[in-house]
């Protein structure tokens, strides 16, 4: 039975192509219009900046493989479709050394390049690595709770809940623990997220390039109130930061162990609170809750190079 030759641009095909174009165009428009909202692609700190560069580099490098795959897939599907009897047909051809070597080799080379980039960037972006700067670093100790974040400023003698402030262009050394199920500390505008775990300290160094208010959240399910575990990360000028610290120093809210135990009880929708830090060893005490009496901390001697009490 002879089939009539169908025109290339049949009505269904046209509709399909139009729909595809509309979708792609909308996505593009969306990305353009929402640029600022796309935190990972709109870095406000040095770490996030480097990570964005990595993303762009890796995507472009991968295109060397992805684009030919798509082109060949559709080109071959079209050219060698059953109806096209004019195309060459070699049913027994089942291999070609040269071609096969090529596509073992090209991805190998790409991965080799990417491996070098990975090795270098992973060391460069190691959260344990302290950021270099002329400005002295600010230490902030973070405690993931259910379902809020406690920030302890040991050198300033203050503590806050669900809001962390730091000056711009200043490296911030976060020391992170938890008194809650495993959580993850993430400020996408500034970069790298890190797990917060009971009885251990994870370390992270971030720096904000500009003044601004950024969103922070938890990414590791930690119980019923997990979705509400968001905090504000506010980068201010050095002057405003100092004023803010001074203002808290005059407040009546004191954070000691008793107040902490009350604070640590599970609750959702925790409002922002500022405290005077009345227990300078609070962070160590919280971490110590989960460690045994001997100094051997299992997590220290485990496979990971975490640090125990510091």
């Amino acid at each position: 039975m002879k089939k009539s030759v169908k025109p290339f641009f049949s009505p269904w095909r046209v509709i399909f192509l139009v729909v595809c174009v509309v979708i792609i165009a909308s996505l593009g428009a969306f990305l353009l219009l929402n640029g600022k909202n796309i935190a990972v692609l709109n870095p406000q700190g040095i770490i996030a900046s480097k990570q964005k560069d990595l993303i762009i580099f890796t995507v472009l490098l991968s295109m060397i493989v992805v684009v030919p795959v798509f082109i060949m897939l559709f080109a071959f599907a079209w050219k060698y479709r059953e109806g096209n009897t004019k195309a060459k047909y070699t049913p027994e051809a089942d291999g070609n050394r040269l071609i096969e070597i090529t596509w073992w080799a090209i991805p190998l080379i790409i991965i080799a390049i990417l491996s070098v980039v990975t090795w270098v960037s992973t060391h460069d972006l190691d959260p344990y690595k302290k950021l270099k700067s002329d400005t002295p670093a600010l230490t902030i100790r973070v405690v993931a709770l259910q379902w809020k974040w406690l920030f302890i400023y040991p050198d300033q003698g203050i503590a806050t809940v669900n809001e962390v402030r730091f000056p711009e262009d200043t490296p911030v050394n976060f020391e992170i623990t938890a008194d809650a199920p495993m959580s993850a500390f993430w400020i996408p505008n500034l970069g790298t997220q890190t797990y917060a775990m009971n009885g251990m300290t994870s370390k992270l160094s971030l720096e904000a390039d500009n003044v601004g208010e950024y969103r922070g959240s938890n990414t590791n399910i930690s119980g019923e109130g997990y979705a509400k575990m968001n905090f504000k990360a506010i980068a201010t000028s050095r002057h405003e930061f100092d004023m803010w610290v001074k203002a808290i120093a005059g407040s009546n809210s004191h954070l000691d162990w008793t107040v902490y135990e009350e604070l640590a009880k599970p609750n959702k929708n925790q409002p922002v609170v500022y405290y005077m830090l009345h227990e300078p060893e609070l962070y160590a005490m919280i971490q110590h809750k989960y460690m045994d009496d001997q100094t051997t901390n299992v997590q220290q001697s485990g496979m990971m190079n975490h640090e125990g009490m510091n």
Binding site: D292, D293, Q294, T296, M303
Partner: peptide, 9 residues
Amino acid sequence: IVLHPATAG
């Protein structure tokens, strides 16, 4: 082996 040192007192 990993938990061997974790004697918890």
